[in-house]
Amino acid sequence: MPRGFSLIDPSTLATATPTLTTSRSTEASREASTEATPAQRTPSATPRAALASSTGQAFAQVMAEVSGASTSLAVRQRQTPAVAEPAGRALAEPARSTLPEPATPVAARLIDLGMPRALANQVTGTDIFGEMLAALRSMPPPPRPPQGAGDVLVIAGEVAYALPIARTVAQSLHLDPGRILLAAPSTAGTGLHASRRISGPAEAERRGRQMHRAEVPHVVVVDAPVTAGDDGWVRSITEALGATAIWAAVDATRKLADTARHLETMGRVDALAVYAASVCSDPAGVLALDVPVALLDGRPATPAAWAALLTERLHTLPAHA
């Protein structure tokens, strides 16, 4: 038999078994003695006797209370006004461009008269007229009326003001003012013969062909009241005439926004003939319309004419504090 191993005598197994049983009983008794008594144990769940029966009076009372609470909650929810969610934040207004301060008190007064800030800041005050003249010469020269054979100049605006401008231009071109044509509902009160009236686009086209074959230029006034809407009247007449140039008669005392809107209704505008500038609080404001000024109160709108007008107005304008 190999060393280290020994056989168990089968006769000893019978006596060994009771001993094993006895030891197991002893361990069980020891474990039982260490367990807590039922009174000391913490219940793991609510006893069945504590649960309300679904058929008992207590259950009915509880359900009535729950139902009443739910109803009152629903009523409160209906009565409580809904709180609107805050609306999205309004877009911030765009920041206004920061304009440079007037360079001198004289420049500030010129800006009040409508002179563009960039030009006004060139006037320091040592030689007001000379500096103003030099600044205004940086602008494009005023357009001249077309004077070639067969040219057609249209002056559009309110007849009461456009017609005197047309007469001034006709005289400068050595033309007979009585030969001016008028596209308007009537020639009454204008001093023009009824035969000088253009009734509409069809007649404007016929007359235009004749004028373009003439040896002299022609001047045509087109009635364009400020109060009229954009009905296409001015556009249709000027296109039918084949106008060489289109000038708009502009009131310097009118708001620039209204004047700009009126110019939009005319369509193509090559230059402005400004009137009432001498009585306007800011006569140079029309320079902001971005359309060349041809005439200033009946005179060519040269830098000298602008400088003379603004210098005269400086003496009547209160000085800045």
Results as ranks from 00 to 15, higher is better:
residue 118 A to L: 06
residue 50 A to I: 00
residue 216 V to N: 13
residue 179 R to H: 15
residue 58 A to R: 01
residue 193 H to A: 14
residue 120 A to T: 04
residue 104 T to H: 00
residue 234 V to N: 05
residue 315 H to F: 05
residue 191 G to L: 03
residue 83 V to K: 09
residue 197 R to A: 03
residue 58 A to C: 01
residue 11 S to V: 13
residue 27 E to N: 13
residue 94 P to V: 12
residue 40 Q to K: 15
residue 207 R to E: 03
residue 81 P to N: 06
residue 141 P to G: 11
residue 121 N to D: 12
residue 320 H to L: 04
residue 159 V to S: 05
residue 145 P to C: 13
residue 66 V to L: 09
residue 145 P to H: 12
residue 145 P to V: 08
residue 194 A to I: 13
residue 157 G to F: 04
residue 112 D to V: 08
residue 288 A to F: 07
residue 142 P to T: 09
residue 208 G to Q: 03
residue 303 P to Y: 08
residue 199 S to W: 06
residue 116 P to Q: 02
residue 144 R to M: 08
residue 119 L to S: 01
residue 137 R to F: 01
residue 32 A to I: 15
residue 293 V to P: 13
residue 274 V to D: 04
residue 298 G to K: 05
residue 269 V to G: 11
residue 61 Q to I: 04
residue 3 R to E: 12
residue 122 Q to R: 07
residue 47 P to F: 01
residue 276 A to K: 14
residue 140 P to A: 10
residue 73 L to R: 10
residue 23 S to N: 12
residue 295 L to Q: 10
residue 194 A to H: 12
residue 75 V to Y: 09
residue 271 A to I: 12
residue 182 L to K: 03
residue 97 S to P: 06
residue 19 T to Q: 11
residue 194 A to E: 14
residue 256 L to F: 06
residue 192 L to N: 04
residue 65 E to D: 04
residue 19 T to Y: 13
residue 38 P to L: 11
residue 275 Y to G: 01
residue 261 R to M: 09
residue 183 A to W: 05
residue 209 R to W: 08
residue 171 Q to T: 13
residue 27 E to F: 10
residue 290 D to K: 14
residue 64 A to D: 05
residue 226 V to P: 02
residue 111 I to P: 00
residue 94 P to G: 04
residue 2 P to T: 15
residue 227 T to Q: 15
residue 36 A to W: 12
residue 198 I to R: 00
residue 273 A to F: 07
residue 99 L to G: 02
residue 150 G to P: 15
residue 204 A to K: 07
residue 79 Q to A: 11
residue 45 A to E: 03
residue 234 V to I: 11
residue 69 A to L: 13
residue 120 A to L: 01
residue 141 P to V: 13
residue 189 G to V: 00
residue 196 R to V: 04
residue 146 P to W: 06
residue 113 L to F: 09
residue 196 R to H: 14
residue 13 L to A: 10
residue 271 A to D: 07
residue 41 R to D: 11
residue 317 L to F: 00
residue 274 V to Y: 08
residue 196 R to Q: 15
residue 272 L to Q: 08
residue 209 R to D: 11
residue 255 K to R: 15
residue 62 V to C: 00
residue 67 S to C: 04
residue 246 I to Q: 14
residue 161 Y to A: 09
residue 200 G to M: 07
residue 146 P to I: 06
residue 229 G to F: 03
residue 295 L to A: 08
residue 152 V to G: 06
residue 149 A to W: 11
residue 73 L to A: 14
residue 112 D to P: 01
residue 190 T to Y: 03
residue 280 C to R: 04
residue 72 S to H: 10
residue 6 S to R: 13
residue 100 P to N: 06
residue 285 G to Y: 01
residue 260 A to D: 14
residue 82 A to N: 12
residue 147 Q to N: 13
residue 165 I to Q: 15
residue 189 G to A: 00
residue 50 A to Q: 02
residue 274 V to W: 06
residue 37 T to V: 10
residue 93 E to C: 03
residue 320 H to V: 05
residue 196 R to I: 03
residue 135 A to V: 02
residue 134 A to G: 06
residue 218 H to D: 07
residue 93 E to N: 09
residue 174 H to A: 15
residue 212 H to F: 08
residue 235 R to C: 09
residue 108 A to P: 01
residue 163 L to F: 06
residue 262 H to C: 06
residue 35 E to S: 15
residue 161 Y to G: 03
residue 198 I to V: 05
residue 272 L to A: 06
residue 57 Q to S: 05
residue 284 A to R: 04
residue 96 R to S: 09
residue 164 P to S: 02
residue 259 T to L: 13
residue 210 Q to I: 06
residue 186 S to N: 01
residue 286 V to Y: 04
residue 240 A to L: 10
residue 73 L to D: 09
residue 204 A to P: 11
residue 2 P to Y: 09
